[in-house]
Design a binder for these strands. Structure first.
Lengths: 185, 185
DNA sequence: GTTAGCATGTAAACAGTTACATGATTGT
DNA sequence: ACAATCATGTAACTGTTTACATGCTAAC
C-alpha cells in the first residue's frame, strides 16, 4: 500500500471534493480525520493533482468565490474510487513513528534542564489541544471504520498525555545530571 | 532538530560503536531502543557514515572477524558527541505518525471481510511481538531518559493491542457492508 | 548447489521540500 | 502601509530508496 501524496489526495477526495489548498489544510488538521497520514507541501500536492486528473481518477473544475480568488475543486471519479479501494485492500505495513521528543527525552541527563522543561511544556500543550479537538467531533455521524479510527486517536493521545503528566518530573529531575563540560570547544 | 540518517547514525554511535550493517539492524530493532526513528536503507547509511568521518564526528577502523567478512566499525568522537547534543537541544517538532492499518480500517465497510480479518490478525501478532520484546528488556540497566522512553513504548503498544482486542469485532462486523459492485469495470 | 546471512558500496531513479513567483482580499 | 489568508503553480535542490555489483561463510 503506497502512503504518498497521491494516496493522500485520493483518500481526502474520497470523502469530499476539495481544492489543492483545502487538501493541504485537511492533511494538517489535528482533528485527525487524516492524521494517520504525513503532512505534505503544496509543491507536492499540485503536481499530484494534475497527474491524477490526467489519468482520469479525479476531475477538476473552477469554482468562483466572493471576496476570494477562484479555486479549482477536484472530485473523485468512479475509476478513482475503485483504484483507491483496490490499492488499500492489501495487508498493511507496520505503522511508522518518528519522535523528536523521545530522542530528546532519552538524552535528558546530558541536556540543560531549561531545554527539557520547555520541551515538556510544549508537548503537553500540543497533546491537550489534540485531545480537545478530537473530543469535539461527533462520533455518531461517522461510519464504523471512521469511528474506530477516531476513538483510537483519542485513546492514544490521552494515554500519551497522562503518561507525560505522571512522569515528566523524573525527566526534569534527571536533566543535566550528566552534563558534559562544554569547555570541550 | 533534523531526524535524518545522519542524526540516526550519531544517535546509535552515541550509545555504542557499530558498523554500517549493525546500524541498519539496530534501526529496525523493535526492542525500541531506536524505534522512535525511521528505518533507513544501506544506500543511505554508508554515504552518511563516510561524510560523518570526513567531518571528524566519527572515526572508523577495520575489525577482522572469524568466519565472517571484515567490518568497518565506527566510534563517535568528542566533536561528534557535542555536535549531536547541540543539534537535539531544541524544542522538538510534533511526532510524525503514519498508519496504513488505520487508512484500511477507516474504509472497512467498502473492503472485503477477508482483507479486514487478515489485516487485524497480522497487526495483533506484530503488536504482541513488540510488547514481548520490550518486556524482555532490563529497565534497571538504563539511564532515566531511556527508562522513560522504553516505558512509554511499552505503554503505547499495550494500549494499542488492548484497543484492537476489544474493538476488532466492530471492524469485522462492518466489513463489506457497503461493498461497491466491482462490475463498474 | 542453492539459499540465507554477513558486509560494503555505487548509480540511477524517485519523492518530496524549499524557495520563488504571482496576485487578490481582508483586517490592523 | 503591512501582514495574514486565500489560491495556484514551477524549478532547483535534497534526501532516500531501489537496484545493482561484489564476495565470503554457513547451513540445508
Amino acid at each position: 500500500m503506497p502512503m504518498n501524496v497521491r494516496t493522500l489526495c485520493l483518500a481526502i477526495l474520497f470523502e469530499e471534493p476539495a481544492s489543492g489548498y483545502e487538501i493541504r489544510k485537511l492533511s494538517m488538521d489535528n482533528t485527525c480525520k487524516f492524521s494517520h497520514f504525513i503532512d505534505v507541501s503544496y509543491g507536492a500536492i499540485y503536481p499530484a493533482l494534475g497527474k491524477l486528473e490526467e489519468e482520469g481518477l479525479i476531475a477538476g473544475h473552477v469554482v468562483e468565490q466572493e471576496n476570494k480568488p477562484a479555486k479549482r475543486v477536484y472530485e473523485i471519479t468512479d475509476k478513482g474510487r475503485s483504484e483507491f479501494l483496490a490499492s488499500i485492500a492489501v495487508v498493511p505495513e507496520d505503522d511508522k513513528f518518528k519522535s523528536e521528543f523521545l530522542l530528546l527525552a532519552m538524552h535528558c541527563d546530558m541536556l540543560p534542564r531549561a531545554v527539557i522543561r520547555k520541551a515538556i511544556e510544549v508537548r503537553m500543550a500540543t497533546l491537550r489541544a489534540k485531545v480537545n479537538s478530537i473530543e469535539e467531533c461527533d462520533l455518531c455521524a461517522l461510519t464504523p471504520g471512521a469511528r474506530f479510527v477516531f476513538a483510537y486517536g483519542l485513546l492514544m493521545n490521552r494515554a500519551s498525555l497522562k503518561y507525560l503528566e505522571e512522569n515528566h518530573q523524573t525527566l526534569i529531575d534527571a536533566a543535566g545530571t550528566n552534563l558534559q563540560a562544554e569547555a570541550a570547544e
